[in-house]
Design a protein around this nucleic acid. Structure first.
Length: 443
RNA sequence: UCCUCGAUAGCUCAAUGGUAGAGCAACCGGCUGUUAACCGGUAGGUUACUGGUUCGAGUCCAGUUCGAGGAGCCA
């Protein structure tokens, strides 16, 4: 019977069979140590020369890295046994080689980014990447399972969208028969149509931004989940968001402890991620940034933290601000001028709007962006005109405010940034199986 | 788009303007507990590309290409 490696501990003392690939090998004379991975984990398989026939021993001794194999042996607990989860190893009785692999380019040594990215199709086999992408899968499952359990209806939004009303500089253009279409960079407007049919909805899929961004936080193709709720104001939105994000983090923490250990993640920093999250108004954030700027040691940092009311935050501002907290924070009430046209202004203070960005701790930056949407048709039309947007392109969107308009809110959460934060990695490119970046379309 | 840095063996990196080197990986050998083992040996090079300076260029100069880090951009 074939046993998955992550269930080895249940079979101590039994004879089991593993199917997998040779991750690493070393030998000590009459003893060969094989690290075998099968997708669920990594297990040490020990071949003693005296316990197997000569052909099996020779085969094990010279087997190249990443060869595919089937190995049978006795499971035994041994605290010296490395692996994931580790602590159990296989005393090999027989070994069947499916294929002797060609010389494998990725050795268990350090490599440069370019080399690893060129070999992304192989790199994903490495234990860190394997762990990271398993956490990603858990995050994606947690997203769906929480929303489904709370009565949200998953409603797909189109990836191919008509010629954008606003600037198209950050949209990917594709041919659509005789016209042009653009790859969607948000499903939000369609979500707003969907809530009037289903009340609480979400879309979840890839999104595309042709930004020439070259930072550790940007991909040109990334996954985003966008929940949208009818009868929901900004305060209710924030409560929902903190429950949602906390659930995602706690699910990863409980289900991927082995993976997070492989990544060397400080688990205590994830355990504290529970509601409520601190709320900071934009006004207060600007004041705090002024204080932080005065405390800054060097001129360069002081220059990066320059801030006047009305400016959008840059990466240095987000990093400095979030370092004051050990949980994600909400920054609410951004200036309307730097935010999208559809955001509801504060009553009596139209220069700020009911927006909320969630900034992750440890400098990981914005992981959600959301707002209460304008529900009044006249105000929406006014804002569209103010921004110089073509009314015709938004006809259906304005329609939504004419037939039973209600206060409603929603947000988008970036999967790769969330995974990068949970896993404690440097760059979002590793949080996607095959990341698309400014200079990267292969493999 | 801007700033900074980089490109030498399959990989990670050395090399005053004067014979191109090491570690790892590969291959051969040794070792019954390895954790990126260790020890001995073998093989491995159009120094990103184009041009220039020089008796002589991996090294200096100019341009190009590619990459990295950061900024900007990110309704």
């Amino acid at each position: 019977m074939v046993t998955p490696i992550n269930e080895l501990s249940k079979h101590a003392g039994e004879i089991v069979t593993l199917q997998g690939w040779l991750y690493a090998r070393t030998d000590k004379g009459k003893l060969v140590f094989m690290q075998v991975r099968d997708g669920t984990g990594i297990a040490q398989c020990v071949v003693f020369k005296r316990e197997v026939d000569e052909q099996t021993f020779e085969s094990a001794l010279h087997l190249p890295q990443e060869s595919s194999l089937i190995v049978t042996g006795e499971v035994r607990a041994d605290p010296r046994a490395p692996g994931v989860p580790g602590g159990y190893e296989l005393g090999v009785k027989s070994l069947q080689v499916i294929q002797r692999a060609a010389e494998y380019p990725i050795s268990p040594k350090e490599h440069g980014v370019e080399f690893l990215m060129d070999n992304r199709h192989l790199w994903i086999r490495s234990s860190r990447q394997w762990a990271l992408l398993r956490v990603r899968a858990t995050v994606m499952r947690a997203i769906r399972s929480w929303l489904d359990s709370q009565g949200y209806v998953e409603m797909s939004t189109p990836v191919l969208t008509p010629s954008a009303a606003e600037g198209t500089t950050n949209l990917f253009e594709v041919g659509y028969f005789d016209e042009k279409a653009y790859l969607a960079q948000t499903g939000q407007l369609y979500n707003e149509a969907d809530i009037f049919a289903f009340n609480k909805v979400y879309c979840f899929g890839p999104t595309f931004r042709a930004e020439k961004s070259k930072t550790r936080r940007h991909l040109t193709e990334f996954w985003m989940v966008e929940p949208e709720m009818a009868f929901c104001d900004l305060d209710q939105l924030l409560e929902m968001e903190e429950q949602f994000v906390s659930f995602i983090v706690q699910t990863a923490l409980h289900e991927n402890e082995n993976e997070l250990k492989v990544l060397g993640r400080d688990l205590s920093k994830l355990a504290t991620i529970t509601p409520p999250f601190p709320r900071v108004t934009y006004d207060d954030a600007v004041k705090k940034l002024h204080e932080l700027r005065e405390q800054a040691q060097d001129d360069e940092q002081r220059q990066l933290l320059e801030m006047t009311w009305g400016m959008d935050f840059g990466a240095p501002h987000e990093a400095a601000l979030t370092q004051l907290y050990d949980k994600p924070i909400f920054v609410t009430g951004f200036p309307s001028a730097v935010k999208a046209f559809y955001m509801e202004p504060y009553p009596g203070r139209p220069e700020v709007c009911k927006s909320a960005d969630m900034l992750a701790p440890e400098g990981y930056g914005e992981i959600t962006g959301g707002s209460e949407r304008i529900s009044d048709p006249d105000l929406l039309l006014k804002r569209i005109h103010e921004q110089g947007l073509p009314e015709a392109a938004y006809r259906w969107y304005i329609d939504l405010r004419k037939y039973g308009s209600v206060p409603h809110s929603g947000f988008g959460l970036g999967v790769e940034r969330t995974v990068a934060w949970i896993c404690g990695i440097e760059h979002v490119r590793e949080a996607s199986p095959f990341p698309r970046l400014l200079n990267r379309l292969y493999p």
